[in-house]
Design a protein around this nucleic acid. Structure first.
Lengths: 364, 364
DNA sequence: GTGAAAGCGCTAACAA
DNA sequence: TTGTTAGCGCTTTCAC
């Protein structure tokens, strides 16, 4: 390289400097850096990848929607990746995409990546045997149990069932006879997880398990589900599998003349930025996207760089219930008490970190 | 290569097959493909990049927030890129990131990309001279005028001022004396663009230009701004620079006892998926994210592959006003008429593509 | 239509 | 602490 010549050293020494290797004298390092600066030199990644067999990049398969969850996770992943010196290759799977996840993985493998992250609960439709056949890099699955079949599969962000359970329990604690569930699409692990947590909570308390209504994560599907649920007078509490659906649901309830939370309590899942500002402000279960992304990437990078060493285990996610104004004690059966608002909100549940909560709960 | 040996041809012929070059007999092509299949061969991208000097990947600098706009744009870009055979390298700039956009570009350049997309209106804080210094690939700026300084800069998705203008005019058409503006952070071109459109509309009609309130795109900032605006009895119509802020704004208005749209009309910008389901359903200006991404990528790929040929010009974005229930005729000055709801919505504005609009407008 | 030779810019393994 | 020698797997150029 020219840099080597200008600095009066060998090519290898330049390489050493740029890789922060030991055994380079400060003086030589300085000279090399100077020469590089002067020539506007940048290390050629392709050549490095070719020679070293490592691309130093991680492929991410994400959901092709602007949903809050996947988008947040992606940002967390990027941040964590860049911190550890890896670049990201991102591929989205769109609903009805030919190839789906398998195609996306194949694309990434073709590009050359040292590891793969499958973000957001994955679709099981694809034939696992096929998907994982040629995958020779570690795979991190976020928010789902690691599927067998892949050589090295890790997972992080599981345990959403615990959060779902806590959400359901919150409603039961408010005195509701049972809790309905507006589920996410059951092809997604995340949706199934939440469903399982809801079921577990009801089972624990010996409550009825009403039929599940399934949405597709969108507010529109929540709205559609809400029209159904509103028709059923027995519904007094609903746990929606994400905030968007909860918002659509509330809209449908209100249109049908059922007040939230007076007649029906609604709890969401995610804590999207708008959740605090819809009417009524939505009580929801916050998801720890950044910690999950960080933890997951730590595992993945570990698997890439030290394939032999065993991996430290992941922790359970923290339960972070964000109490706002969409949940209230169950309406008593006498019509008289129906006019009451949220004044009797229980005080035993900790009130956690919603940005503008203070000002929000005392709405007109 | 092993594939070459197994197929009984030269390495070069294998290369030809995998690059879909002409001058390969069907028979040879078949043999090569077969051999590759058998060996599970994948073309090595790093080697190809090294030899050809082209990485076939595009770097994207996006905003590190899960906002609907940037996320949608990113998805559109990925789709368009993959369609043209390019992979994506994604970097987010986080608020307060050391280096900011300049650092992100530098990172991408180090990784090796054939082109760069700067998604979502960019921050001008960075010293342009520095930012663009070593950039030797075409740069596409989405939603902002192309800055000079870079060798080859393109832009797409400009013209949001036209949309902002139309949004403002919608409110003026409803009889409001003037329209207030809840602007986005003015460091972003997109925010300035919308501000400019709003100003232009007011100027055209000879209306007052009330002081601008500035938010940061978040519902929280919209809420804060809303508390200010609610205190001003003259405010009867507000154009918010995005839907999230509009939602926060509405929340603040309602809390302050000002009904939407009876007392104050609110129009948003973006048409996020939840906009149709908040209370009241939000009238908003839809942004054409996918067309912008596609058009932009077309330009970028063109600039990468045929640097000499001149680029076809971009078109103006289509105006797509989504009428819902958050805007209504200006309240007349007599207190008597204040009870009226949206019954007198004008019929002259086309009602466009909101998913569930039909069922939404007749809320209780 | 197909092949041979050279080399892209780096790192690995060893030598000094 | 630094240098030498190969060679990563492809494309380029030119010859056949």
């Amino acid at each position: 390289m020219d840099v080597a010549r200008l600095a009066g050293v060998s090519q290898k020494t330049v390489s050493r400097v740029f890789n922060n290797e030991a055994y380079v004298s400060a003086e030589v390092r300085r000279r090399v850096l100077e020469a590089a600066e002067e020539l506007g030199y940048r290390l050629n990644h392709a050549a490095r990848a070719l020679a070293s067999g490592r691309t130093r990049s991680i492929g991410v398969v994400s959901l092709g929607t602007a949903l809050y969850g996947p988008a947040s996770l992606l940002i967390g992943i990027e941040r964590a990746a860049r911190d550890t010196g890896y670049a990201l290759r991102v591929v989205y799977t769109l609903e009805g995409d030919p190839g789906g996840i398998a195609g996306a993985i194949d694309f990434l493998l073709n590009q050359g990546v040292d590891g793969i992250v499958i973000s957001e609960p994955i679709d099981e439709e694809a034939d696992e045997g096929t998907v994982w056949a040629g995958v020779d890099v570690p795979v991190l699955v976020l928010g789902a149990p690691a599927p067998f079949g892949a050589a090295r599969t890790l997972c992080a962000g599981v345990g959403a069932d615990l959060l779902a359970r806590a959400a359901t329990e919150h409603l039961l604690d408010l005195g509701h006879a049972t809790v309905h569930h507006l589920a996410g699409p059951q092809r997604w692990y995340a949706a199934r997880d939440r469903l399982a947590g809801w079921r577990a909570a009801l089972a624990d308390r010996g409550c009825d398990q009403p039929p599940v209504v399934e949405g597709d994560w969108s507010a529109a599907s929540g709205y559609a589900a809400g029209r159904e649920l509103a028709a059923d007078a027995d519904v007094t509490a609903v746990f929606a599998a994400n905030d968007d659906m909860a918002i659509g649901l509330m809209r449908a309830l209100v249109e049908a003349g059922r007040r939230v939370p007076d007649d029906v309590s609604v709890i969401g899942f995610d804590d999207t930025p708008v959740a605090a500002y819809v009417t009524p402000p939505l009580t929801t279960m916050r998801q720890p996207f950044d910690p999950v992304a960080q933890e997951g990437l730590r595992l993945l990078v570990h698997a890439i760089e030290k394939p032999d060493v065993d991996l430290p285990p992941a922790h359970d996610p923290p339960v972070d219930l964000v109490l706002r104004a969409s949940t209230a004690p169950a309406p008593s059966r006498t019509p008289l008490s129906r006019g009451r608002r949220t004044a009797t909100r229980p005080r035993n549940v900790p009130r956690t970190g919603a940005p503008a909560d203070g000002g929000l709960s005392d709405h007109p």
